[in-house]
Amino acid sequence: MVREKRFLVVDDSGMVRMHIRKLLESIFASVTVHQAEDGHAALELLDKEKVDIVISDWNMPNMSGEELLYEIRSSEKLKNTPFIMMSTNDSRDFLITAIQLGVTQYIVKPFSANELEEKIHSCIGMLNRRREKRYALPQHVARLTIDKQTFEGTLIDLSRTGAAFTLDQFSPSFVLYKVCTLDLIVPCNRSLDKSSMLISGLNGRIVRLEAKDTFHPTSTEFQGALYFNPVNMKREVESKLNKLIKLLAGRTPDYINNE
Rank of each mutant, 00 (worst) to 15 (best):
Y135H: 15
H216N: 15
D90V: 01
S91R: 13
I84G: 03
F111R: 06
E152C: 09
F83A: 04
M86V: 06
L116Y: 08
K119T: 05
L95M: 11
I96M: 08
R143Q: 15
G201R: 02
I72T: 10
G204D: 09
F215Q: 12
L137F: 06
A136H: 14
G125P: 04
T154V: 11
N114S: 14
A113M: 12
L202M: 13
L101T: 06
K148N: 14
F165R: 06
I146D: 09
T161F: 10
D147H: 12
L116T: 09
K119M: 04
S173A: 14
R190M: 07
L167F: 13
V186W: 00
D168A: 14
F174N: 08
R131W: 01
F170H: 11
L202Q: 06
S122C: 09
A211G: 15
H140S: 03
L176N: 13
K77L: 10
K133E: 08
D93W: 00
H140E: 08
A113Y: 01
T97Y: 01
R130I: 03
H216Y: 09
R131N: 11
D93A: 14
L184Q: 01
F94T: 13
G162W: 00
T104I: 07
V108T: 13
P217M: 10
A211R: 14
S159Q: 08
L116F: 10
E152R: 12
G201K: 05
G153L: 08
D93R: 09
K212H: 12
C123V: 10
N89V: 12
A113T: 15
K194G: 01
I156K: 14
M86N: 09
S112C: 13
L167S: 02
T214F: 11
S191N: 14
T181Q: 15
D157L: 04
R190G: 15
R190C: 05
A142L: 04
T181P: 02
R129P: 00
E76Y: 00
G153C: 01
M197C: 03
A136K: 13
I96H: 11
L78M: 10
L127R: 07
D213I: 03
D183R: 07
V179T: 15
I96R: 13
A113E: 15
S196D: 09
L202I: 02
P82A: 01
T145R: 14
H140L: 15
Q105T: 03
I156F: 07
V175C: 02
Q100T: 00
L198P: 03
R129W: 00
A136G: 12
S91Y: 04
M197S: 11
S200E: 14
F151K: 11
S91G: 11
Y106F: 15
V141W: 00
L116I: 07
I156L: 15
D90C: 04
L144H: 02
Q105I: 01
M126N: 14
R130H: 04
V179R: 15
E118Q: 13
L78I: 03
S195L: 05
